[in-house]
Nucleic acid binder design. Structure first.
Lengths: 339, 339
DNA sequence: GTGAAAGCGCTAACAA
DNA sequence: TTGTTAGCGCTTTCAC
């Protein structure tokens, strides 16, 4: 704590300064700083160096080190919608935790869907000698991979590109849909409606497939009229209310939490109670909504944190190899009080 | 586009390679790459160099450059809740846009409130020779500044620390509260309730002050019984319903959008219509909620993007100096249909 | 107009 | 056990 010079500005303290102060060579300083295995350093020398270090307030220069050892500790993360959803934040969080665990640091770039920003971001990362890049989107979908991504190791997160040869880490939509439906079945429901999205996507097909497989496993006949398409927003859920009631269902699986929120409004307007008159489960586990609806919404979580973390592991080659380069991450059930 | 070697792995192309290929010295290559003013380079030489560059697929090594010129282009951003709110994302977005505009790159670290993670993050940034650090929180409050932040230039974003001497960029709560109230007054309301938070904070006092000053400006007497304390969540808003109705107010300014959402539920349950029977305005402009409630909620936005951008400007010394080192950012009204 | 050489802070053989 | 030396990729005087 007894720093002589704080060097907030002005020449920073370098290894040479330490070497001089401790009357040793920079090589020696380097050795003690990095606790080198091979090099035996006398205990008293080590002492002197350490004293000099915290006397002068030395801090290693990571950039110089990188240049010298040849490989950087940066991993780039380009995201398309950091600002507009809480989801990207969780991907970042997961990626960061995992990266740090392995001694890496994240270089984050937000592109907000802008092509030019994206290219700039990738170029910037390449110039900073990143170890690799995580390319992520805020909702699961197929994408065209920017050409420049092929100049380094990259893994796709929450998106994929068939034929690109790039590994992708995505949520297991089918398992998620199945899980959601099972929550309802387990609660005793037989006539279960499904408000699906209208936008073509892995979520649309995956969750539907999951819904069907859960019914099948429970030996409930699939009834096409029970799947109701809706815009995946509150408005869509609200507007689907009449159809849901007309369907005679006693439970409904909503494509996402926002749809469920809209449905709650519609149901309440008709004097229907959740879950007594109608059980509902959502999807996404969007905190601000799901946890605070009345009653709190049971849902299935999109594992964004895990997507980010797994992305890093795949990039670093720590994840067991898969055949098809598609890493499916499980979507866990989150039980609250709407079922 | 005719890269001969893509060097995805293997020795990267360096300036030396270019120099050799173009039969010039590395100094010359450096000059043309950086478009140096001083150095005159023959047109044909410049040509040759450029050809070699995109023939070999050269990309400058930002780290080596930094080491050489002595000052880095990194700016650190430490955030306490990237994952749990969409707000941090907007701060990052604003900071990034502004940083890029000036040729800087963001090193982001999420600490999720963890003291150790915070220290590690700051140490990491210092080791990477950041130009400075933006220290941000996801809601406006007073903080204790980590000791290590004093080792570099830092600016506080969405938080402050009196006596620390550090510049802080924060939302103008009072103006925001005034704006919100004015929206209601302008719509003709005279008896306006205010559901305030129960947690001591700049938001609590600032918005209340703004509320009072708006009333005063409109010559409406302040009635203490019209300010109702509530937990700043949906639950709080819902529970405040009875008090609101009992107060005889025709309009209510909610401490935040979540409270407004809860209030909507309570009001609907009593058969009251928004805005006909009760006008309501929120605060925060939390997209998922405000824009999708029925009717869509008029609110006042917390200027997170601007906070991030202004933070960078202050750090870079681009913002006109203020006396008290408190930079107040305006909270604009967002008009939708609840008034 | 262009190049040689020194140096940024650090690491890594190899000597001593 | 410790020091010498040669780079890592780039910039920047200062000669030619």
């Amino acid at each position: 704590m007894s720093r002589e010079r704080q060097h907030k500005h002005g020449a920073p303290v370098t290894m040479r300064d330490i070497a001089k102060e401790a009357a040793v060579s920079v090589a020696t300083v380097s050795h003690v700083v990095n606790n080198k295995e091979g090099a035996r350093i006398g205990e008293e020398t080590r002492q002197r160096v350490h004293e000099a270090i915290d006397h002068l307030g030395y801090r290693t220069n990571a950039l110089a080190k990188t240049l010298s050892v040849g490989s950087s500790r940066f991993i780039g993360l380009v995201a398309d919608a950091i600002a507009t959803t809480p989801f990207a934040g969780q991907i970042i969080h997961g990626a960061q935790d995992e990266a740090w665990k392995h001694g890496y640091v994240l270089l984050v770039a937000n592109t907000e869907g802008n092509q030019a920003a994206e290219n700039d971001a990738i170029a910037m990362m390449l110039e900073h000698q990143v170890k690799g890049i995580l390319y992520s989107t805020w909702y699961h979908r197929e994408i065209d991979v920017p050409e420049s991504l092929h100049q380094t190791d990259t893994v796709l997160v929450d998106c994929f590109s068939t034929g690109s040869g790039l590994p992708a880490v995505v949520p297991n939509e089918q398992q998620g849909g199945k899980t959601a439906t099972e929550e309802l079945i387990t609660a005793g429901h037989q006539r279960i409606a499904f408000i699906n999205t209208t936008t073509p996507s892995p979520a649309l097909t995956g969750r539907l497939a999951g819904y069907r497989s859960a019914l099948e496993a429970a030996e409930i006949d699939f009834d096409e009229s029970l799947v109701i398409p809706a815009v995946p927003e509150q408005e869509g859920g609200y507007e689907a209310t009449a159809a849901i009631i007309a369907s005679g269902a006693t439970a409904v699986f909503c494509h996402n939490d926002r749809v469920a929120m809209g449905l709650y409004d519609g149901l309440r307007e008709q004097g229907l109670d959740v879950p007594k008159d109608m059980a509902v489960v959502g999807f996404d586990n969007q905190e601000v909504i799901a946890a605070h609806l009345r009653p709190p919404l049971s849902t299935v979580a999109l594992p964004h944190y895990e997507l980010g973390a797994a992305g890093i592991r795949v990039l670093l080659g720590l994840e067991p190899e898969q055949d098809d380069e598609m890493y499916l991450i499980e979507c866990p059930a989150i039980r609250r009080q709407s079922v």
